[in-house]
């Protein structure tokens, strides 16, 4: 045991981010990934990890609107970026149409892959409001889900696209 040794000084990096619309500053060890900074330094544990090697998609977030695996991105590279995570998807108490559709169509079982899937799907629908079923499957091919067999995920995204388009038409 080494209680008298000098304290470990790791929080040498400091950046500013826009996270779910809020300006934040954060200090952290420079080797940390965006995933680790979100979860450990900003307490945003909604973003999950399944491999920390870029293989499973659980940690997907939107960086400047683009889906990105946060486990492969150093947080240091994100200075000044705008990050969207699962915590920012709902507007107040209202679920985002994707969240509502996942609830209604069984798109989420254990729920562990869900934040990554939802953020990837949001990235898709923001860029392509009318994706085909095949296109949805293609966009989500990097998000592994062990529970659903994907069918109800694809159903959910299809339905959410419909709802979002209807809302846009009304507005």
């Amino acid at each position: 045991m080494n209680t008298m040794a000098k304290p470990i000084d790791r929080r040498k990096a400091h950046i500013r981010l826009r996270v779910n619309g809020e300006e934040v500053e954060v200090s952290f060890a420079p080797y940390k990934t965006l995933l680790e900074v979100l979860r450990e330094d900003l307490d945003l544990t909604g973003t999950k990890h399944g491999c920390e090697l870029g293989e499973c998609g659980a940690c997907a977030v939107l960086v400047d609107g683009q889906p990105l695996l946060s486990c492969l991105k150093l947080a240091l590279e994100c200075d000044g970026c705008s990050i969207e995570t699962i915590e920012g998807l709902a507007e107040g108490p209202e679920l985002h149409p994707l969240q509502a559709a996942f609830s209604d169509h069984g798109g989420s079982q254990c729920g562990y892959c869900t934040p990554g899937v939802l953020m990837t799907a949001k990235g898709l629908l923001d860029a392509e409001p009318n994706p085909s079923r095949e296109r949805i499957k293609e966009a989500l091919a990097g998000n592994l889900c062990r529970c659903t067999g994907y069918q109800q995920i694809v159903d959910s995204v299809e339905d959410a696209a419909r709802v979002i388009n209807e809302q846009r038409a009304k507005a």
Binding site: L44, T45, G46, T47, K48, T85, I86, E87, L89, A90, L95, L98, Q99, F102, S103, D104, G106, S108, C110, G111, Y112, T114, P115, L118
Partner: peptide
Amino acid sequence: RRRVDGRAKVTGQLRY
């Protein structure tokens, strides 16, 4: 029906 724990799962609020 929506599952009882569904909301926490789609909002990232569930604590694993």
